[in-house]
Amino acid sequence: MKFSDFVATGAIRSHVDSSTKEGVIREMATALVEAGRIPASDLESIVKAILKREDLGTTGIGRGVAVPHTKHPSVDKLVGTVAVSQEGIDFDSLDGDPVHLFFLLVSPPDQPGQHLRALENISRQLRDDAFCRELKAAKAPADIQHLLEAADNHGMVS
């Protein structure tokens, strides 16, 4: 799976306004609504479900990266977006570091394979330090978009 298979272009954010876990999750989910990828009527329910998932254990997986996610019946295909915080946000990460890169995923309840392959793609690409660094330095959503495309094109990911 590639980034272009699930990242909603119009929902990418290069500067998040929030400084809290809930804030950034809400901001990213709202961006998905604005991009027409999830229904506005489901926004609260999706934000609540993602926060509930965070309560079970942080998705701040280290290296300044978090992958907040949930399953939700409002989507029939995996949808996600990317956001960058220059300041970094406390996300109770596994390594204690603030999180700068966020990949938010909403997947259909009955298709765990899609979610796994998105996680695979994200984690595979993030092993590349240069990719992480360049994402964090992105000045505009278009920069992020280009970096994701470049990663997709390098990828040997199926």
Partner: peptide
């Protein structure tokens, strides 16, 4: 490494 483990994408 959680990142490495996730790259397995190991399904049921």
């Amino acid at each position: 490494s959680i990142l490495e483990v996730l790259t397995l994408a190991a399904e049921e």
